[in-house]
Simulated assay, not measured.
Amino acid sequence: MAHEVVEGFKFEQRHGKERVRVARVWKTPQGRHFVVEWRVGISLFSDCVNSYLRDDNSDIVATDTMKNTVYAKAKECSDILSVEDFAILLAKHFVSFYQKVTGAIVNIVEKPWERVTVDGQPHQHGFKLGSEKHTAEAIVQKSGSLQLTSGIEGLSVLKTTQSGFVNFIRDKYTALPDTRERILATEVTALWRYSYESLYTLPQKPLYFTDKYLEVKTVLADTFFGPPNTGVYSPSVQNTLYLMAKATLNRFPDIAYVHLKMPNLHFLPVNISNKDGPIVKFEDDVYLPTDEPHGSIQASLSRLWSKL
């Protein structure tokens, strides 16, 4: 992925295909169906400088071929697999099948289709769309080196108490009052990078990364909410974010890096008043929800030995 010098210029290039949508259905002999829907993006690093400099496309993998490869490889997957494993499979194909391709980035967003329950029974072939999305990115080099990242988009969480914000910097522009009682709401975007650095060191357990995704999501949510009966006090989004990231690294030894983005989606206590004072007295029970403008808080945490 390094640059090269071309006609006296530093030159970097890549090409690929974005927003390739594919759904795959698996059917067991017992009639139970499984379905995934993926939006695939592919980016190839390849020795195809001539296509930029002159009339010579002989070293290019056509982006339409990349699109067709997504469908062909999905068909070849006879057993259900994680979105991470499919991203790795695609990236591995491009770097091994094409001599000119030196590296591949495959990123995938999985829609949250969830099996429905009817009359207390899981439906054999019925699904509904959930909320947060599962993301994956595999970067594979011809040497077999790997960088694997998973993530969550749109994990919306809210708690109606056990949150406050006090003793922040005050100046002539500060209007926000101290409070130890507020709603805390956010939409978590999380990324975590695994410590596997080679295709040859990956876990061989089927659906390993699917299980890990569900476990990470549980740890993030449990840390945000706290125990079911008492909860846990949040003195700031910053502190809660840090505790969520730390809990993830502490719980999963094969995760080397976590990045969390948590906008503070404000629920403003309603205030109806006139020159004589409040018309209606609200007591932490009626709020104005707003998602703009919102606070923006993000941070990353990685192990000291991590190369990241």
Rank of each mutant, 00 (worst) to 15 (best):
A2P: 03
F9R: 12
E12F: 11
Q13K: 14
Q13G: 02
K17T: 07
R19A: 14
P29V: 06
G31N: 06
R32H: 07
V36T: 10
W38Q: 04
S43R: 12
L44E: 03
F45G: 07
S46H: 15
C48N: 14
Y52T: 01
D55F: 06
D56E: 00
A72L: 13
A74K: 09
E76I: 10
S78L: 15
D79H: 15
I80V: 08
S82A: 07
K92C: 05
H93V: 05
Q99C: 01
T102Q: 15
V106F: 08
V116R: 10
H123V: 03
Q124A: 14
H125G: 01
G130P: 06
E132D: 09
E132T: 05
E132P: 14
A136M: 10
S143T: 15
Q147M: 15
G151P: 00
E153A: 07
S156D: 06
V157N: 07
T161L: 11
F165G: 03
T174L: 09
L176K: 14
T179G: 14
R182C: 04
I183Y: 05
R193I: 03
Y196L: 10
L202M: 13
F209S: 02
K212P: 01
L214Y: 12
T218N: 12
V219E: 02
L220F: 11
L220N: 05
L220P: 07
T223L: 12
G226I: 09
P227E: 02
N229E: 13
G231M: 06
S234C: 05
Y242S: 03
K246W: 01
L249T: 06
D254C: 14
I255S: 07
V258P: 09
H259D: 05
F267H: 15
P269D: 05
V270P: 03
N271L: 02
N271I: 03
K275V: 12
V280W: 08
D285N: 14
V286A: 13
